[in-house]
Amino acid sequence: MNFWKAVVAIIWKDIRAELRTKDILSSVFVFALLTVIVFNFAYELRVPSMKMVVPGIIWVAISFAGTLGLNRAFVIEQDKGSLAGLLLAPVDRAAIYFGKMLANLIFILVVELALLPLVMIFFNLSLITGPHLLVLFLGTYGFAAVGTVFSAMAVSTRAREVLLPVLLFPVLLPVLVAGVKMTGGLVDGASLSEMGNWLQLVALYDVGFTVVAYLTFGFVVEE
């Protein structure tokens, strides 16, 4: 059980450091909010009802802001060489992956939970329901699962932060498509069971890429 102890220790360390500075949470949240507002100006009066575009707005805001957060998470590990400190410890590399990934996941979920009420008020929609949250969770999980590996790569290249969206978005596309489709379906009054194929697709993506990340993360952090 040392594996999960290490995972929890890493998550706890990230949360504690974050609560102290709130660097990631605050900048990611404000950026997500700004994205929503900018989209509002981009679409308003051009589409018959904002309800038609809100699902897209939510997912674009999450992926843009989430990318920002992922970058921060590994820059922090690199700056004082603390990632090397983690690697020196007698801890499975996969435990480091799960620790960082789950911490990233928690951060993005917290931002989403803060963002959703505002989106509800802005666009007069009901978004805090079981199915909506499930869809958000599954999509965000896929985002964190793949994004954690890619951000670990991006920060140790010359281009650093700039590279992450270029690497991440083409691989992430199915999650975005499925997320927009399902959130849109829910907004239009469909039930989740009518969108079973989309749920399966995201679940397959999440599970599949968690396994791939589990197998490859060691190659990303070790020399």
Partner: peptide
């Protein structure tokens, strides 16, 4: 990256 990309 190639593994992630191709599987996606």
């Amino acid at each position: 990256y190639a593994i992630f990309a191709f599987l996606s």
